[in-house]
Design a protein around this nucleic acid. Structure first.
Length: 500
RNA sequence: GCCCCUGUCGUCUAGCCCGGCCUAGGACAUCGCCCUUUCAAGGCGGCAACACGGGUUCGAAUCCCGUCGGGGGCGCCA
């Protein structure tokens, strides 16, 4: 393959907090594209905002991306041939090109103060105009500017934007997009504190890093003409652009904490599987050509296609994410399920920090049974109360009704008598006894089993009894912080509670 | 306010570029039925959309124009 055809894409986050699902989706699309095309995925950290950037946020970023299952070929943590990969370490590069533009006359020093500029902006807004820099400092010669600088004046550097004409480009997802140059303000490329501005740094970095495709959020669409102008001022070849639509919350405003979890970190802690999150994110604004939607990362790589990316904003649907999480949970082995579930059970003090072999074997079975229908792992401890909590006095309305029926009392009385002298219990004994009761009373089906379920679990619903009974019996012999009551114990307590 | 993007079931979307195969397909959610000693899972089925108005055409979700709605941008933030 010719070198110029090599696909090189990048994710360029600024380390200002936890990574948001919107950025995670952008990361995923870039990564899928690179992996499918056999290209390179590059991580570059845009930390030129001294106010908001923090070094530890970079670690979070890396951790979250790796957890999601993404990897990169070049980046601040692993290096690469086009480094450094932090903008704060590339300042000399930006200055070199800024100087070049200054000398060629395509950029100029601007001495206007932030206050002055704000004033101009307000005036324009008040007149219903799109704010645009007046161009006041355009006429200051480079020599004049340098002597003012030498005299201690502060100045930013701006790019000269042509006064007329239109600028058009072909966006890979949006098609042809046009801008009227007379509405575009001369962008600041270097701030008066010497730091490069975003529009300048991205262009320098993307070009120097030979980025072939810029795949990013739609919020950057209107920056693109400024960046294209910079490419041509520097005589560089343009990358392809692809602008992804935004991710919204239920009320059609930008997804925020108000809507629920939004950071990758939060989803991880809630117990969403990384493969479920990436699957869901891929489905937000992209659809597989064949109907099947439950897909692993490897499958996404082969199926992904920028041409199938939708142009309109998408609302983040937690229900569908949970459904996908359940689907991916089903794909795991019992052992894997336990491994993932354990921290949540420990957190809830259901199990101690160390497990005996018997405990972990039992837990493996329990998790495998109870995980059915669980949206996210953090919901699991709640499900475990079926095993660990038995409180007849806290029956809900439904359970109370079931157990108060006259036939139910009859069933329970008999069951209590027949189990009174037993030392041990099993599902087989349960089946025998219920058979006898059926014969003696003629009560069968729901009327027979439902009261017994309530008596054994203190709930109207739960696991099937043929699974529940052996599980509880086995669990009752194990030493848990909160013990599991045996079936016989449960019957005894329940009978007492009902005054049978 | 101005500029740019966008508009198919409640939600994510297929179809649109290359008009007829669309009685508009799938998935989530929801409702019902079946299975099941309850619940869940699973199976089956139902409800549900081309924003609106004009064109063009024998024929428009698909092409053109306008209106309205939504989003983004208009920073010495990225």
């Amino acid at each position: 393959m010719d070198k110029k055809d090599i696909v090189r894409v990048r994710l360029a986050p600024s380390p200002t907090g936890y990574i948001h699902v919107g950025n995670a989706r952008t990361a995923l699309f870039n990564w899928l594209f690179a992996r499918q095309k056999g290209g390179a995925f590059i991580l570059r950290v845009e930390d030129t905002d001294l106010e908001r950037s923090r070094a530890e946020y970079e670690q979070n970023l890396i951790k979250d991306l790796r957890w999601l299952g993404l990897d990169w070929d070049e980046g601040p943590d692993i290096g690469g041939d086009y480094g450094p990969y932090r903008q704060s370490e590339r300042l000399d590069l930006y200055h070199r090109y800024a100087r070049q533009l200054l000398e060629e006359g395509t950029a100029y020093y601007c001495f206007c103060s932030p206050e002055e500029l704000e004033q101009e902006r307000q005036t324009a807004l008040a007149q219903g105009q799109m704010p645009k820099y007046s161009g006041k400092c355009r006429t200051i010669s480079l020599g004049e500017a340098r002597s003012r600088l030498a005299a201690g004046k502060q100045a930013s550097i701006r790019l000269k934007v042509p006064e007329t004409g239109t600028l058009a480009f072909d966006d890979l997802v949006r098609g042809r997009v046009e801008f009227d140059l007379k509405l575009i303000s001369d962008p600041i490329i270097v701030r008066s504190n010497g730091m490069p501005a975003y529009n300048f740094a991205v262009v320098i970095d993307d070009a120097l890093m030979s980025i072939s495709h810029v795949i990013r959020g739609e919020d950057h669409l209107s920056n693109t003409p400024k960046q294209i102008l910079l490419y041509s001022a520097l005589g560089w070849k343009l990358p392809a652009f692809a602008h992804l639509s935004m991710v919204m919350g239920k009320d059609n405003t930008r997804l925020s904490k108000r809507h629920g979890a939004t950071s990758v970190d939060q989803f991880r802690r809630d117990g969403i599987l990384p493969e479920a999150l990436s699957n869901y994110l891929a489905l937000l604004g992209w659809s597989p050509p064949e109907g099947h939607e439950v897909l692993k990362l490897e499958e996404l790589i082969t199926l992904f296609d920028l041409e199938r990316v939708s142009r309109s904003a998408a609302i983040f649907d937690y229900d569908k994410l949970y459904w996908l999480n359940r689907q991916h949970l089903k794909l795991l082995t019992a052992k894997e399920k336990l491994e993932l579930a354990l921290p949540y059970l420990q957190e809830a003090d259901l199990v101690g920090p160390k497990l005996s072999q018997g405990q972990s074997q039992w837990l493996e079975k329990a998790v495998d049974l109870l995980i059915e229908g669980v949206d996210k792992l953090s919901d699991l401890p709640q499900k475990f109360s079926l095993l660990f909590d038995f409180e007849p006095e806290k029956l809900d309305e439904e359970a109370r009704k079931i157990v108060e029926a006259e036939s139910a009392r009859q069933v329970l009385r008999l069951f209590s008598q027949k189990t009174a002298s037993l030392k041990d219990f099993s599902y087989e004994l349960f089946a025998d006894i219920t058979g006898e009761i059926k014969k003696e009373t003629g009560i069968k089906g729901k009327d027979l089993f439902h009261p017994l379920r309530v008596a054994l679990t203190a709930r109207a619903s739960g696991l099937e009894l043929d699974k529940f009974i052996p599980l509880v019996e086995e669990g009752s012999k194990l030493n848990f912080p909160r013990p599991v009551k045996s079936c016989l114990q449960r019957i005894k307590e329940f009978s007492a509670f009902l005054n049978l």
